[in-house]
């Protein structure tokens, strides 16, 4: 049985741009998949195809056990979508926004009213419930948008860059909300450009580049692919570099790289903190004075770089939004 979100060979082209070039996804029920990639990688297009907003040129998608192409309206009943922009009506109050969405999910007017009040409480918007969304801060709008996506407690959620443009405090707040949601059993597909966010929230990560999934695994598995941990040392005196290299290579699993101008030496290791202590002792015995030393684990940025050959940064806009006409 396929997962709560399943896609096979999704292809979508806009003119010359292959926004999706055969994407396969499988998200088991109750888990979070982080779709990680730079702008224009095809993340938004993938979400739009899975949420019935866009018809893929080819491929198959099943969400909550329903075929997205054959039963789009059934799918819409089972999903919540929180897009890249806080899609709330700024001239309606928070309460009116949620009631409207509830009614459009075909809830009875009075049920929609009760549900709206519940969500406003839950998302810490009760005080602002009867102000127009125009007066809300960016973080409040995002919370309202997320609340709107949760009106019917959909079993499957899609969030397209939920924290883009938020300050760290609001991002942290939204992360808490998302974690609570997932602990309740919701299946979530989340796109992000923030490697830290995928690391923090997702059980599984799919790295997307040029419309393809180029790597897939847990955050630890992906990091392991870049060769695991390493020791970095900054020596105080340039003259000590050769001796230090000798010491590090003795402990390391490979060659030591040297950055002359910063006096920084790096060597891949395995053995963690215990090994680090031994390295420090040995450097001390040899009389090498150090400015800094540390055990570095690869970040997802390193992962991205090693997988794609380029850093996870913006490319010229190839977003579906811009090119569809």
């Amino acid at each position: 049985m396929p997962g709560a979100i399943y896609a096979e060979g999704l292809v979508k082209t806009f003119g010359d741009v292959r926004a999706l070039d055969g994407v396969d996804l499988d998200v088991p029920e109750g888990t979070v998949l982080g779709l990680l990639g730079p702008n224009g990688a095809g993340k938004t297009t993938a979400v739009r195809c899975l949420t019935t907003l866009l018809r893929p040129d080819s491929g198959r998608a099943v969400v909550a056990g329903l075929d997205v192409l054959k039963n789009p309206n059934e799918v819409r009943r089972s999903i919540g979508l929180s897009g890249q922009f806080a899609a709330v009506d700024e001239y309606l109050t928070g309460r009116e926004n949620l009631q409207m969405v509830g009614q459009l999910y075909q809830m009875k007017a009075k049920d929609a009213k009760v549900r709206a009040a519940e969500l406003l409480d839950q998302f810490d918007l009760a005080d602002a419930a009867d102000r127009t969304a125009k007066t809300y801060s960016g973080g409040m709008r995002r919370r309202l948008d997320l609340a709107a996506a949760l009106v019917v407690s959909p079993p499957v959620m899609f969030m397209d860059e939920p924290t883009t443009g938020l300050d760290p405090r609001n991002r942290q707040l939204l992360w808490e909300v998302i974690k609570r949601l997932v602990s309740g059993g919701t299946t979530l597909l989340l796109t992000t450009q923030y490697l830290e966010e995928a690391d923090h929230l997702a059980h599984d990560i799919a790295v997307v580049d040029h419309g393809r999934v180029i790597a897939r695994g847990t955050s630890d598995q992906l990091k392991a692919r870049t060769g695991g941990e390493r020791v970095e040392v900054v020596v105080h005196d340039r003259e000590h570099i050769p001796t230090a290299v000798e010491v590090l290579t003795g402990f390391g699993k490979g060659d030591t790289t040297v950055e002359e101008h910063t006096r920084k030496l790096t060597v891949p290791v395995s053995g963690g903190a215990k090994l680090l202590a031994e390295v420090i002792r040995e450097l001390d015995i040899r009389g090498i004075e150090i400015d800094d030393i540390g055990l570095r684990r690869p970040t997802l940025d390193d992962v991205f770089l090693s997988l794609t050959g380029h850093a996870a940064e913006d490319k010229p806009e190839e977003n579906a939004k811009e090119t569809v006409k």
């Binding site: 019935t52 897009g83 922009f85 806080a86 899609a87 709330v88 700024e90 969405v101 459009l104 999910y105």
Partner: peptide, 17 residues
């Protein structure tokens, strides 16, 4: 422009509404 049409289109509502 504000993404509201996307929201509406993702809801199980009548198409012309």
């Amino acid at each position: 422009h504000k993404g509201l049409i996307d929201r509406f289109r993702s809801l199980p509502m009548a198409r012309g509404a």
